[in-house]
Amino acid sequence: MISVRDLTKKYSGKVVLDLPALDIPQGQRFGLVGNNGAGKTTFFNLILDLIQATTGQVKVNDIEVQKSEEWKSFTAAFIDETYLIGYLTVEEYYYFLGNLRGISKEEIQAWIQNFEPFFNGEILNQKKYLRDLSKGNQKKAGIVGALIGKPDVILLDEPFANLDPTTQIRLKTLIEEEAEKNGTTFLISSHDLTHITGVCDRIVLLEKGKIIQDIKTTSKTLNELEQYFSN
């Protein structure tokens, strides 16, 4: 689904990302871990063509993101709260996204009812602007927004941060269900090792822009990662 070749990004001569080759097959729940400055967000921004690569290329579904914009029709992302439009209500924001992804208002209205437990009664019908929601609720609203229209690829940056424990667990279930039901490819970055090993079937560990480990998640993975980060 995603293939990366010779991808590097330099800022004033300093390499911040260097990925010779990386392939993420369809339906994979791909986890990205690493300390601050490891290059996680840079990688996401390159996939979304928000920054230009110094060398190399990213292909999503065989479409080279730097050359064509076709990838936008089946890719969604929630990176941070700047991915919300602060002066809209949640519903208006979803209708907007629905419209861009070819889903009618009525379909959205029916579809978001499924998320009532996830929203915990604090998001829908609040008559509040998104900018007036709490950080956690903004995150919930944004994550669900990324699911609208069943995109093939979804990128989530730190989805577990700021969420309450109940919602963290619900989010894990949600991601697993979406991946299974629709074959969605998830790219998730997180500092939360427990959650990311719990939800992803593959973990890539980045440090200073380079892949240090690329592992299929097993029951031992969490331990290995904790070992690595404690050194």
Partner: peptide, 12 residues
């Protein structure tokens, strides 16, 4: 500008 990142990765 506050949400230009978001706009630029939507199918707009």
């Amino acid at each position: 500008s506050e949400y230009y990142n978001f706009l630029m990765c939507q199918n707009i």
